[in-house]
Nucleic acid binder design. Structure first.
Lengths: 111, 111
DNA sequence: CCCATTCATAACCATTTGGTTATGACGTAG
DNA sequence: CTACGTCATAACCAAATGGTTATGAATGGG
């Protein structure tokens, strides 16, 4: 509704698109979405990269509000954050709708 | 449909998310979507960056198949490519649907 | 024919990014 | 108490990224 005058820089959307732009990160996220809460250990097993890198990817996903972390003993469990995608979905709804008429039923979503 | 075994690296989706992860690029794209075909000149006027940078951003959007270019005389006109968002939308449809039940009516979309 | 406009590319720079190995903090199990 | 398992952070590196100014290739107008 608020007209993006010339540059609607939005930190959250920025962070989310950037977070989603990496294949490894998407794979982690997809795994969390499909399999539910997972420890870093488990995620390291399925990601093709080292454990520190997994931690860093998860950190970025967390800062993008796409996942949440729950510490339990020596393990940290990450889960996909529902509502996490909302900002991106909203962007898609607005511009995708204008773009073509292929979008519908995406409204009623709050960041 | 094809189960992402552990890492569904998809160059197009990668490129699209990456392309969308920059605010300036999104602003250019949004402008094209809202105002239709525009010359680089016009786009430079609304983007907050130099003309070469606009060209480079447009190049990246083009490689991501989000815009198309049409050369006319000394001007190049860019337009948002309809269907461009399809891969991203598809990803959103699949994972967004799993993610929460907030997604619907996103199927029937082809890349 | 010359000059100006439009655009893309080159050269350069600082920062970010994805990756690694090494280390350290903390919890748990003998 | 010691040893191991889990995770995050540090240090480091090469490559990509966003930005700039300078240049060059076309096209169009006087």
């Amino acid at each position: 509704m608020t007209e993006p005058l010339q540059d609607d820089r939005n930190p959250t959307i920025d962070a989310q698109f950037k977070a989603l732009s990496d294949g490894t990160r998407r794979a982690l996220l997809e795994y969390l979405v499909r399999e539910g809460e997972q420890s870093v250990h488990a995620l390291t097993a399925i990601a093709g990269v080292s454990q520190p890198m997994v931690s860093r990817h998860l950190g970025k996903l967390k800062r993008a509000k796409l996942v949440t972390a729950r510490r339990a003993g020596r393990e940290t469990y990450y889960s996909a954050r529902s509502k996490g995608l909302a900002p991106v979905v909203q962007w898609m709804a607005v511009y995708g709708a204008l773009w073509s008429q292929r979008f519908t039923a995406l409204e009623g979503m709050e960041a």
